[in-house]
Nucleic acid binder design. Structure first.
Lengths: 276, 276
DNA sequence: CAAATAGTGTCTCTAAGACAATATCAC
DNA sequence: GTGATATTGTCTTAGAGACACTATTTG
């Protein structure tokens, strides 16, 4: 670096120009088993999303995605991982950046650009984890999520936990630059533009699981083909024929040599993800 | 909004917390025809990327992607479109957000988070456009781009214009969150982390054209199957059999009723993108 | 044995790769 | 006709969807 450049940098002050605040918001998904199974029946499973109840203004008391402000000397991914850990106690093994939400009026506090992330936790990690609200969050909890595209381009997003139930309505369309986007018609009480971010996250998750990416992150190291298929069905919202799914999945799996037992029916072989 | 919330917002000052500057950088691709064709031979075509030569520090004189700072009251997409227009005179019909680059040391001026975009221009638009450097740019020019993955995970990026030639070397890997990423081994004189951004853009462009997305944006409204195939070949770096490509492409096309003529060989039917 | 889930085999249909053959223009 | 590109057809192989059938466990 020459002297002229050093001079330039010394006289250059980023603070002289307007800057937004930057945040990460994280949509964390997991599949949870229902406790109440009867003899020999497999446990029911649900696709869940981690939400916090906001303890502070704005949107105090509303449900929101965990997230927070980018700090100096960290990347946006590190910020997402840190905020998730601080607000919920969850340690994210994977993170996918799914979009930037920069509508100038998206936050009543002012000019805040949000980076949306998608993460996935396995039920195994879930059980060893105590989700807990941090300073900014009154409470973190798993909500059963349901996202369906009704007639035309109208999507219904439903989130349930015990007697708490949130229903948002969105419209999907192509923006002027050719990208699929969601517009919130009713936010159902969700904070900020988080209904829109959740819709984008589900959409992204569906794309990735279909091609055997992200789907393994829902499962422990060893799992059965039925486990894998159930997750694909939960996420896509469609039911599949086991024989065909098995054939397709086999390319991505290797047999561990182990099997399940004590299940009241034929044991299932346990597989793990093939490294390839 | 209740009074308590109003009070909160009045006392809340985003400026009390550290904030980064935020920029957009845009990788604009186009296919350009070579002038020197002989009788009856189709013109040669090249995949090109729009670069500017920086007129200011830092990286004064280096090649860089067009881009600039996010301003109040605009979305990050609007910022990308505006900067592209200001710096090069190009009006982007499409824009794809391809990633956020937030390494704290990526810019010597300080804490700057960059949003990378991908855009595509048709040769038709190209001809009606006078690319011109704006205030920040000494010069905007189209560079023939070549991006190949050699043995293992090493990628070579080459950019050529007349006697100017830039060669960068990158390594591709999965980051700790499971995403494909590029690490710059030699930046070949490109400014900032732009070699990394260009690699991500090419990678994204290849994914999208393969599924008949973005590919039509290179072409005028009416085009022949050979036009379409040539672009797919330029982007993917592989050559295809016309008969097979035709069969696959037909699902996305509709015949206009028109044909080419005066080309010295059998006329080709002109198609347009099927709306479906 | 019955209930419940695991796993195999096969038929059909569609899509993709390879490649041969024919068509049509300008000179 | 020749050179160049456009277009059609066909053979083969790989993969997905549908579905019938067999296998193995526990109470």
């Amino acid at each position: 670096m020459n002297q002229e450049e050093q001079q330039f940098l010394q006289n250059y002050h980023l603070e002289d120009y307007p800057r937004p605040s930057v945040t990460s918001d994280i949509a964390v998904f997991a599949v949870k088993s229902e406790a109440g199974e009867t003899y020999r029946l497999d446990p029911k499973k649900k696709l869940c999303l981690l939400l916090i109840q906001r303890g502070q203004f704005p949107f105090k008391g509303s449900l929101a995605l965990p997230g927070g402000f980018l700090r100096p000397n960290e990347t946006i991914e590190a910020c997402a991982a840190r905020e998730l850990r601080e607000e919920t106690g969850a340690k994210a093994p994977i993170l996918r950046h799914i979009g930037v939400f920069s509508n100038p009026s998206r936050d009543p506090r002012g000019w805040i650009v949000s980076n949306a992330f998608l993460s996935v936790l396995s039920e195994e990690i879930l059980q060893n984890m105590q989700i807990s609200g941090g300073d900014d969050a009154a409470h973190a909890e798993w909500f059963e999520i349901d996202f369906v595209q009704k007639q035309d381009d109208i999507c219904h997003l439903t989130l349930k936990h015990d007697d708490v139930r949130v229903s948002a309505v969105l419209r999907t369309f192509q923006n002027i630059y050719g990208m699929q986007e969601f517009e919130v018609l009713e936010n159902g009480g969700l904070a900020f533009d988080h209904a829109q971010i959740i819709a984008a996250a589900v959409s992204h998750l569906r794309r990735e699981t279909k091609q055997f990416s992200l789907i393994f992150d829902f499962l422990p190291e060893q799992f059965t083909l039925a486990d894998l298929q159930k997750i694909e069905e939960l996420i896509s919202g469609k039911s599949l024929l086991a024989s065909n799914y098995r054939r397709k999945a086999e390319n991505f799996l290797e047999f561990t040599g182990n099997s399940t037992n004590g299940s009241g029916h034929r044991p299932a072989r346990l597989f793990r993800r093939k490294v390839s």
